[in-house]
Simulated scan of single mutants.
Amino acid sequence: MADIMDILLSTTRLVTTTQLNHQEATTVVLHQELSSPAHDVWAACTEPGRIQEWFLPISGDLAIGGHYSLEGNASGEVLECNPGRSFRVSWVMGAGPDSELVFTVTPTNTDHALVELRHTATVDPDLMGTYGPGAVGVGWDATLLGLYQYLRGIPTGPSNPLPTHAMQSFFEASSDAWATAAIAHGAEADGARAAAVRTTAFYTGTDSSGAS
């Protein structure tokens, strides 16, 4: 449990506004330093055989211009790749909004690396008001937790779920952290905190808002 909270506390979160396909979009940004060399982090996030060990099975062509699919999750196109350093992909979930993901890994010394994850999406204002940036950000916190555990040799993935009480605490803390990031970006504090409660309920399966 300590490791879970440690990675939450050591992750930096930002919320920014930008343009995507000539529309106003919201970007959530996560920075996390991992105690693994950059080449190992890169391999864990780009080699299909390793991705499925901590995230999801992936299929398709991972070269620039190729299309990929994560089983039961997102699909998209590989838009850019700087081998060993960064990639940019489109990120499509069902009939969801336009979305892009940029992943960057930077060595900080021989055995540590800084990961930056940027997810930009055009989001319906009502949906943003209901859940805030945590609707996306909490999922990426969970993803970085899986990567962190995998690189440390801790069993992870769907076949090795964390205890329910630990995930409850994780989702609450992550949602609250994203509320803080939203407030720093200019969101009204009470509304951001209320959105965090709804985001926690969504991730824990207790959401009764009827949102899909």
Results as ranks from 00 to 15, higher is better:
residue 14 L to P: 01
residue 15 V to T: 09
residue 15 V to Q: 02
residue 15 V to P: 00
residue 15 V to I: 12
residue 16 T to L: 09
residue 17 T to S: 14
residue 17 T to F: 13
residue 19 Q to R: 15
residue 19 Q to W: 12
residue 20 L to H: 04
residue 20 L to V: 08
residue 21 N to R: 15
residue 21 N to A: 15
residue 22 H to M: 13
residue 22 H to K: 14
residue 22 H to V: 14
residue 22 H to I: 12
residue 23 Q to T: 14
residue 24 E to F: 11
residue 24 E to R: 14
residue 24 E to P: 11
residue 24 E to T: 15
residue 25 A to V: 04
residue 26 T to D: 03
residue 26 T to L: 10
residue 26 T to A: 06
residue 27 T to K: 07
residue 27 T to N: 07
residue 29 V to F: 03
residue 29 V to P: 01
residue 30 L to M: 08
residue 30 L to R: 01
residue 31 H to Y: 13
residue 31 H to I: 05
residue 31 H to C: 03
residue 32 Q to E: 08
residue 35 S to T: 13
residue 35 S to P: 05
residue 35 S to N: 13
residue 35 S to G: 08
residue 37 P to Y: 03
residue 37 P to G: 06
residue 37 P to W: 03
residue 38 A to E: 03
residue 38 A to R: 10
residue 38 A to Q: 11
residue 38 A to V: 11
residue 39 H to V: 14
residue 40 D to N: 06
residue 41 V to A: 02
residue 42 W to Y: 04
residue 44 A to W: 02
residue 44 A to C: 05
residue 44 A to E: 02
residue 45 C to W: 14
residue 45 C to G: 06
residue 46 T to F: 04
residue 46 T to G: 03
residue 47 E to Q: 15
residue 47 E to W: 07
residue 48 P to W: 06
residue 49 G to Y: 07
residue 50 R to A: 06
residue 50 R to N: 05
residue 50 R to E: 13
residue 50 R to W: 06
residue 51 I to P: 00
residue 51 I to K: 00
residue 51 I to T: 02
residue 52 Q to V: 11
residue 52 Q to M: 11
residue 53 E to R: 14
residue 53 E to Q: 15
residue 53 E to W: 01
residue 54 W to H: 00
residue 54 W to C: 00
residue 55 F to Q: 01
residue 55 F to V: 06
residue 55 F to M: 10
residue 56 L to T: 11
residue 56 L to F: 12
residue 56 L to E: 04
residue 57 P to Y: 05
residue 57 P to S: 08
residue 57 P to A: 08
residue 57 P to N: 10
residue 58 I to W: 00
residue 59 S to I: 07
residue 61 D to Q: 09
residue 61 D to Y: 07
residue 61 D to V: 03
residue 62 L to K: 07
residue 62 L to A: 08
residue 62 L to N: 04
residue 62 L to C: 08
residue 62 L to V: 08
residue 63 A to F: 06
residue 63 A to P: 02
residue 64 I to R: 12
residue 66 G to L: 09
residue 66 G to W: 07
